[in-house]
Design a protein around this nucleic acid. Structure first.
Lengths: 116, 116
DNA sequence: ATAATACGTCGTAAGTTTGCGACATAGATA
DNA sequence: TATCTATGTCGCAAACTTACGACGTATTAT
């Protein structure tokens, strides 16, 4: 949160922003979709499925892991990454609450002016 | 999308990431909540409600406007900013689809290992 | 033991965000 | 007209992101 004055906002706003940030890169969206699509948890060759270097993918994995959205389990020579669906569900609810709040109020139509 | 190889991902992934990015800062979350909470659209004294300078708030407004999540209507000396609820609803659906997909698959429990 | 494989770490280059002060512009008002 | 007020624009500094190659480490196999 670059140069951040983040302390001045509510915990709720900060948390939503943090999670949104985790989804704010196509690679991370792709990683989550990839993990969701496989029935078994998959090991680190996620990189092979993405158009990015292993190092970069690893970095994205770390970011998701930092928020606990995914888990990594060492299994001998390989590592199993898989989704923390419980947390994802919680996050989903938080987003839902936000969007419901946001879509409820007064607004401009698709093209007409708002009645200020 | 810094240094981006974004072209290599699907349009869907890129779009979700773009919107997520718009929500990836507490100030922008706060702005949307503020606009939602007021019955009337409000003008540029949004800055007065946030712990940021007018310039910085304006910048955040521009970012939201670039994605068309909010609209600005000039009204004499002041400007009315208000939410594009139609778009927000659409975005909400997109997030919903993503989260449902993500929470459906195999996963690690809250603390137990996944069965790789 | 030695080598091969799979992960993880470091350092760095380049680009983006965030935040702000100072200046520019335009409608309203005295 | 002169001025005030509300917005918008510019340019810059500091911090953060993204992306990678090269190197380190640990586990398995030979």
């Amino acid at each position: 949160m670059t140069h951040a004055k983040t302390a001045a906002f509510t915990e709720e706003q900060q948390h939503l922003a943090r999670v949104a940030k985790a989804l704010a890169h196509p690679a991370r969206v792709a990683i989550i979709q990839l993990l969701a699509s496989k029935q078994t948890c998959i090991s680190g060759d996620i990189a092979a499925e993405l158009p990015l270097s292993r190092t970069t993918v690893f970095q994205h994995l770390q970011e998701l892991k930092a928020l606990d959205l995914i888990r990594g389990e060492i299994d001998g020579l390989t590592v199993c990454y898989c989704l923390n669906t419980a947390l994802l569900q919680q996050v989903y609810q938080q987003f839902t609450a936000f969007f419901i709040e946001a879509t409820a109020g007064a607004a401009c139509g698709p093209d007409e002016a708002c009645g200020c």
